[in-house]
Simulated assay, not measured.
Amino acid sequence: MYFVQHWFNLADVACEEALLDSTALRRFVGIDLGRERVPDGTTLLKFRRLLENHDLGAQLFVKVCEVLQAHGLKIGTGTIVDATIIGAPSSTKNKDKARDPEMHQTRKGQQWYFGMKLHVGVDSQTGLAHSAAVSSANVHDKHALPDLLHGDEQRVYGDSAYASQKELIASKAPKAKDFTNDRVRNRSGEVDELKRSKNRNKSKIRARVEHMFAVVKRLWGFSKVRYRELTKNANRAFAALALANIYLSRSRLMGQVRL
């Protein structure tokens, strides 16, 4: 029922109603209305609080990574690091008459965003997330870099937000070469075409991280926070990444089942 809530981006009560309306969802969850009733929204809320209090979302993510590795989807020698903004309500028209104090604003390009950041480390070969971190939106991408590397990398890819972080990369992954994108404009505004060409080649690999974000934000609907506080949303983020890893591995896993 908790996974159904993630897949369809449902609130607690909406998830309960979806199970009451859908025979297919009840069959998946394993509920027979002739023998038991569908757990209500309050029960689901208490279950989610239990996960949050014991940091079980992160443990679920780690466990899924271990299971996938056992099925041959091993972590390779390259890691792609990136971050995406998860929006939060900026209005103060609520019960507390205030924004969530753990969410902050940041500017990307010429536009301001309010919310949090989801930082991920994705394997450059499989495109699966092997590490993640959550922060307020105003935290620079580079600060989460050490938490996104597993230490055995030979190459680290990232956009220009991670440029000039060789020392930080070396502190966590001493064997890794820095393949993050370089800044192509100098102080006078001139474009270095050689760097731009190299960035294009790097971006062909780096683009794989966008598949993960597409599943989490577009397919699972996690483009905006549902709860207040980073801890609650971090639990949802780790669970969403675990489910996204399974989704992106579905062809490989189903092939093994057929064999």
Rank of each mutant, 00 (worst) to 15 (best):
G115I: 13
G115A: 08
G115K: 03
M116R: 04
K117G: 02
K117M: 09
L118C: 15
L118A: 07
H119E: 13
H119C: 03
V120S: 11
V120M: 08
G121M: 14
G121T: 10
G121Y: 06
D123K: 07
D123A: 13
D123N: 15
D123Y: 08
S124W: 06
S124K: 01
S124T: 09
S124R: 06
Q125C: 10
Q125H: 14
Q125I: 10
Q125W: 09
T126G: 05
T126V: 11
G127H: 12
G127C: 13
L128E: 04
L128Y: 05
L128P: 02
L128C: 09
A129Y: 00
A129F: 05
A129W: 02
A129P: 11
H130Q: 14
A133N: 07
A133L: 13
A133M: 12
V134N: 00
V134Y: 03
S135E: 06
S135D: 06
S135I: 02
A137D: 04
A137N: 04
A137T: 04
A137P: 02
N138C: 10
N138I: 01
H140A: 14
H143F: 12
H143E: 15
A144T: 10
A144R: 00
L145S: 10
P146I: 14
D147I: 02
D147V: 01
D147W: 14
D147S: 15
D147P: 01
L149T: 12
L149W: 12
L149D: 07
H150Q: 13
H150D: 06
G151M: 11
G151S: 09
G151E: 08
D152P: 06
D152E: 15
D152N: 15
E153L: 09
E153G: 02
E153Y: 00
Q154C: 10
R155S: 06
R155Y: 12
V156D: 02
Y157H: 09
Y157W: 11
G158V: 01
D159P: 09
S160C: 14
S160L: 11
A161E: 04
A161W: 01
A163G: 11
A163I: 15
S164P: 04
Q165A: 09
K166C: 11
K166M: 07
E167T: 15
E167W: 05
E167R: 08
E167P: 01
L168S: 12
L168Y: 00
I169G: 00
